[in-house]
Computed example of a mutant assay.
Amino acid sequence: TAAHPTGDTGHALGVVTWAASAGRLGHDGADRSYRLVVRTSVGGSGLRVRLSNAFGDRPLRVTAVHAGLSDRGAAVRDNRRLAFHGRPSVTIPRGAVVWSDPLPGHVPAGALLTVSLHTPDAAGPATGHALALRTSYTARGDHTAEESAAPFTRTTDSWWYLDAVSVRPDHPATGAVAALGDSITDGRASTPDRDLRWPDVLARRLARTALAGVADEGISGNRVLSEGGGTSALGRLDRDVLQLPGVRTVILFEGVNDLKAGTGVTAADLIAGYREVVRRAHAAGMCVTGATVAPFWGWPEWSPAAEDVRQEVNHRIRTGHVFDAVADFDRALRDPRHPERLRPDYDSGDHLHPDDRGMRALADAVDLARLRCDR
């Protein structure tokens, strides 16, 4: 369920400038302030935030939300209150998301933005993104309006309740790209607090183009076809991609977790899942770039059978006209002498997740000119 002020449309919501896929988090206690730090992609005015109770088992009350530019640590400057239907607080129904009203003023591209929110009586499962790779902060009591870092004595490696931010871009024709993926898209093994996931690097490449907004919708362990690390890609496609404002292109980079799970997933199964993503994205007017599945020889769940399926899937992606365009991530990462494994200089050490250099290679493998299609 998507709730926003009466009369709003996708156009009024602008373009997504940051997003992170929501999942189920453990209960963190009542009367908490969260000071969440995120990096914008596209700049603009009329900032809105989307709060999520997608995985809660009861309504979630949020009594105050503020947004400003990050200063040192948990400190913030130009910290201003956000409203919901003109009110400072909002109750989010179980399973729902809600957009704030627009905030006057301009937010720069590539800025560190701080969103502070207070939950007085949260209980049960929380909603958020576990692997933020960005230090955020918490405090007991409502300290959302304070610009000082002093009350925020604890750190958190997750983003709580916040799952998207949008702006009205400086150039009205600007759109966004959503990267739908698993742990590699989530940035696992990239350096924390430096925004070196491949979608982050891609955002810097796209900064002066008509697709300057980038949403990183990666979840570690995620699969296309079945529940694994969170809701399957097919199950979360609407909330995490199709309902985000301004998205014109989806980059789909998933499949390795389906293959290594040992569930007997075939190439035909995975291609059918990809085609379903494409069908639904096309129905929403979006283009889809499909990425080939990267090598993972040396990972404990690698097997010759899974490798055979990976090779068949990649052949179909390259030649089968499954997608509007192809990003050959396999070619970008594989060892030329042993193509079933990662290049050693891109391997973080676990033989599945690329390091910072590998993340850059993935971003560089995306042909920016082919991200748009005639839809």
Results as ranks from 00 to 15, higher is better:
residue 347 D to S: 09
residue 350 D to S: 07
residue 93 P to H: 07
residue 306 A to P: 02
residue 124 G to I: 03
residue 245 P to H: 01
residue 184 I to R: 11
residue 364 D to G: 09
residue 66 H to N: 09
residue 70 S to W: 01
residue 295 P to Y: 03
residue 203 A to P: 10
residue 177 V to H: 03
residue 19 A to D: 10
residue 155 T to D: 02
residue 340 E to T: 11
residue 43 G to K: 06
residue 6 T to L: 15
residue 369 A to G: 13
residue 135 T to D: 11
residue 314 N to M: 07
residue 352 L to T: 10
residue 4 H to G: 15
residue 147 E to F: 00
residue 3 A to L: 15
residue 97 V to L: 09
residue 80 R to T: 10
residue 136 S to R: 07
residue 217 E to D: 14
residue 343 R to D: 15
residue 17 T to N: 09
residue 288 V to S: 11
residue 89 S to F: 06
residue 81 R to A: 15
residue 362 L to H: 01
residue 312 E to S: 10
residue 26 G to R: 14
residue 348 S to R: 11
residue 180 L to K: 10
residue 139 A to C: 06
residue 273 G to Q: 03
residue 349 G to F: 03
residue 278 V to A: 13
residue 270 L to V: 12
residue 110 G to W: 04
residue 7 G to T: 08
residue 151 P to C: 09
residue 314 N to T: 06
residue 278 V to S: 07
residue 273 G to H: 04
residue 141 G to M: 10
residue 335 D to I: 13
residue 240 D to W: 01
residue 33 S to E: 04
residue 336 P to K: 09
residue 231 T to I: 10
residue 58 R to V: 13
residue 33 S to V: 04
residue 9 T to Q: 10
residue 3 A to Y: 04
residue 284 A to Q: 02
residue 249 T to R: 06
residue 246 G to Q: 04
residue 86 G to I: 11
residue 296 F to I: 02
residue 232 S to H: 03
residue 268 A to S: 15
residue 11 H to P: 00
residue 274 Y to N: 10
residue 136 S to C: 12
residue 275 R to A: 12
residue 215 A to S: 14
residue 353 H to V: 13
residue 224 V to K: 05
residue 142 D to W: 13
residue 188 R to K: 12
residue 27 H to P: 12
residue 348 S to N: 09
residue 9 T to A: 12
residue 266 T to N: 12
residue 20 A to W: 11
residue 104 P to K: 01
residue 235 G to P: 01
residue 311 Q to P: 00
residue 276 E to F: 06
residue 58 R to S: 15
residue 218 G to I: 11
residue 56 G to F: 10
residue 365 A to N: 09
residue 294 A to Q: 08
residue 95 G to W: 07
residue 325 A to M: 09
residue 93 P to Q: 05
residue 1 T to E: 11
residue 373 C to T: 08
residue 353 H to M: 13
residue 237 L to A: 03
residue 311 Q to W: 00
residue 253 F to R: 04
residue 259 L to N: 06
residue 24 R to G: 04
